[in-house]
Amino acid sequence: MIDQEIVNFIGILMLISALAVQISSYIKPMINSLLTQSILLAINATYLGLATSDALLILLAALIVLLRGVLLTNILSRRLPHGRRFVREYSTGTGIALLSSVVVFIISFIIYRIVFLPVIGHPDGAIALSLITQGMLLILTRRNSFAHFIGFVEEENGIVLMSLSIIALPLVIEINILLDVLALVVAGAVLIQQKIEHEPEWELMG
């Protein structure tokens, strides 16, 4: 039997971690918040696995910790230049980031209530949708490669949470998605090494 309060509590903690990512201007704390978020996602999967006696969900949780928690954040951390803790970006002020983040939270909940709730019948996916939109917001508002990637992974965390909230996808699909995202981060890490800050380029206009 699933205790919905526990699931919601973990979901709220994940939202707080998304908010922490949004207001960070230093990259290292952003990576740490992402790590926390991934571990919370794994705890959610573990709890659901235990509550429904589904060993595959526990396996999924272990893979999330291993691939998304440890390996992925490790790759991102290792790509930080020297003086790792002090890589920051200045594209958004904390106040604006916080405000836009809250606005996006509210919009996500409204969209979920209008579009998804009548169909799904329970509000669990709302937090997942918020995580997806928070990830997209991060990609849109930042100029830094690390922030872009963290936004992308946050989006993917939202998708896994949505799948857990609505209907768990077959494990083979979930594992492949995790591996795919990991491979993308590895490929992206090569690009991060070449360029961290992204500005508009005249030759890439029009």
């Binding site: 992308f152 992206g188 070449q194 360029k195």
Partner: peptide, 29 residues
């Protein structure tokens, strides 16, 4: 400029495709 273009490709397409994964969830649902 190649790196910039590649980065835009990776981030925009991957972020967009993630939305496509919702369609997989809904089909399975």
């Amino acid at each position: 400029l190649d790196v910039e273009a590649a980065w835009r490709y990776v981030i925009i397409v991957s972020a967009g495709l993630t939305i496509g994964l919702i369609s997989v969830i809904m089909l399975y649902y």
